[in-house]
Simulated assay, not measured.
Amino acid sequence: MRRRLRGVIGATATTIAVLVIGVVVSYQPAGAGPQHGSHPGAVDQQQARAIADQVGVQGVSEFRVACSSSHRAGNDPIVFPGQTGVSHVHEFFGNRSTNASSTTTSLKAATTNCNPVADLSAYWVPTLYKNGQPVAPESVTVYYQGIHDMAQAKAPPQGLRYVVGNSKAVSPAENPSARWSCTTQSPSSPDFMNCPSGTKLETYLDFPTCWDGRNLDSANHRDHVVFWAGSCPGTHPVVLPRLELLITYPVNGGGLSLGGTVNGVNTTTAPGFTFHGDFMNAWDANELQRRMTNCINPGRKCGTDGNPA
């Protein structure tokens, strides 16, 4: 099992955030969307602190999924369902069919480039650019981790979807989820790091672990799930494994930007602190439950096969 160095954002940066918030792939350019209000904005102060408190927390139990980029397009089936080309450019991992009109049914009928193939889920993040040219990740590892109340954790239901991060952030403090680092050094930063020669750029993105137990989505694609803050609140009592993306890019140095939105217009020049990620669950239910039973609930670490290492 690969050993990982998790970058930790410094205490000063974390405090500021809490105070202020209170593979070659095909390319489809994005259009300029008329509005981007459906993207979730900054989290509240309590959630900002909960996100910051998770930085550096290792999973006690876990299983993994290894994916690669499948395609790149200006689509977002969660935020802009059915509206092809309206979103800024995203990098899609896993399910090869993901487009603006994707549903749980369509994802389950398609194929994936993930290992295991039982995971037909769609994962996506804004496309990275270096000097104006899109860069596909070198590797994408999706970790499903038990970090609290593991024995009570439940498998995410098919169709669950949510968005993490703040694509509309205008400063690093407005997006505590953004976390960039270099492959051989720590700490990390909410904005791009100028990684030295011999290293590669990487990012971690942590997803919430408390679900309301009823809704597969919500109006802002976030309120039905929250980050654990000492416990799961009564409003969100169902414990989920933490989904964590570890993405490594074959670049270092400067000249970096993201697909994003500025003043309602899609661009490829967004800063690193606008990083965000989306998830639509289309796992084979039996295989996902087997991994919960074998790995998450009993506190074991497993590989991509869902068996204890």
Rank of each mutant, 00 (worst) to 15 (best):
T304E: 04
G59S: 10
M150K: 05
N215D: 14
D206Q: 14
K154P: 03
G59H: 12
V79L: 03
Y144L: 11
Y162A: 07
D191P: 13
G213L: 02
A48N: 08
H71F: 08
E174I: 04
V8D: 08
A32F: 11
G10M: 06
G253W: 14
N252Y: 06
V140I: 13
T111M: 00
A122Y: 02
I247R: 03
L5H: 03
V163W: 15
D284F: 04
S106P: 00
T248V: 14
G31T: 05
R290S: 11
L240E: 00
A110S: 11
D119A: 09
S68C: 01
G146L: 02
T261N: 10
K154W: 08
L216Y: 12
V55G: 04
A48G: 14
K200H: 13
V23T: 08
G7S: 08
R3H: 09
I9F: 08
N252F: 04
K168V: 12
C302V: 03
Q28L: 03
A285M: 01
V117E: 05
D212H: 09
C232W: 13
P137R: 09
W124Y: 15
H71M: 10
K130V: 07
E174W: 10
W211N: 02
Y249R: 00
N263T: 15
A118N: 12
V23D: 03
A178H: 07
Q152N: 14
G41S: 02
V265L: 12
L5V: 14
V135C: 05
R242M: 11
M193E: 13
R214C: 06
G234M: 04
H224A: 07
L160V: 04
H90M: 07
L245E: 09
K108A: 11
W228L: 11
A229M: 00
D217K: 15
H90R: 10
I78D: 11
A173F: 01
V65K: 01
C67P: 07
T268V: 15
L5D: 06
A110L: 06
A153L: 06
D217N: 15
P271R: 02
D278A: 09
Y143C: 05
R161H: 09
Q158V: 14
G254C: 01
P34C: 09
T15W: 06
V117G: 02
S218G: 09
G85C: 05
G253N: 04
A17L: 05
L258R: 12
D119S: 13
L107P: 07
P233R: 01
T98R: 01
A32L: 07
G255V: 14
L5C: 07
K108P: 00
R290F: 12
G260P: 06
D278K: 07
C302W: 01
V79C: 01
G7M: 12
N220Y: 11
P116E: 11
S171C: 06
G213Y: 02
H224T: 05
Y204A: 10
G234A: 12
I147T: 10
T274H: 03
